[in-house]
């Protein structure tokens, strides 16, 4: 597999949210606006990239049986770094994302990629895989956030393009499920075509 394919697969073919259905909790929980979705995506991207890189570097020093616990520690470390840095430098966003930042640690994508990809492949491939998957995740969350924000608050990235209230249900919890459901349906159609 060429590195380009390795990178690009995260967007459509193996998009973590739309196709693999991983990391749905943050995808549903924080996407009431496009900005929140993007911030969450970028935070996850950072954790994914860093943990993939570190895991592929240390994989040979870790005995087989304690592999998973060691990976979890590595991931949790980067999650905490993101948590602290965001609290200090982007407090508004940090407050919005709240609980979902520490929960990146149990996001199935991160451990899944470390275990399935980075613990077997080279440093370079792991890095590109992390970047591709992370960007795919960011793309999915931003898309979902934009759709919900456009329909729910008639604005995009905080920019109001029309007066009025929009369809409120889309910024409420039920709207998250419904919007994601239809996006996945669209994605399925797109894949087949």
């Amino acid at each position: 597999m060429s590195q380009w394919k390795n990178f690009a697969k995260g967007f459509v073919k193996e998009n973590p949210v739309f196709v693999l259905l991983l990391g749905l909790c943050p995808a549903l929980g924080v996407t009431s606006t496009a900005i929140n979705g993007m911030a969450m995506g970028l935070a996850t991207l950072f954790v994914l990239l860093m943990s993939n890189m570190v895991v592929s570097l240390i994989k040979n020093f870790i005995p087989e049986k304690v592999r998973i616990p060691s990976f979890i520690v590595v991931i949790a470390t980067f999650v905490t770094v993101v948590d602290l840095v965001m609290a200090g430098y982007a407090p508004a966003v940090h407050e919005q994302l709240g609980l979902f930042i520490p929960l990146i640690v149990v996001n199935c994508i991160v451990l899944g990629r470390a275990e399935a990809f980075a613990s077997r492949k080279s440093f370079m491939s792991s890095m590109i895989d992390g970047l591709g998957m992370g960007l795919g995740f960011t793309f999915a969350l931003t898309l979902l956030g934009s759709v919900r924000e456009i329909l729910g608050s008639l604005s995009i990235f905080g920019f109001k393009f029309m007066e009025g209230d929009g369809i409120l249900v889309f910024i409420l919890p039920p709207g998250a499920f419904i919007a994601l459901g239809y996006l996945i349906a669209l994605m399925n159609k797109f894949k087949k075509a």
Binding site: G175, F177, I178, G181, N188
Partner: peptide, 9 residues
Amino acid sequence: VPAALIVAG
């Protein structure tokens, strides 16, 4: 999956 999500909604 889409139907399941819409039902969940």
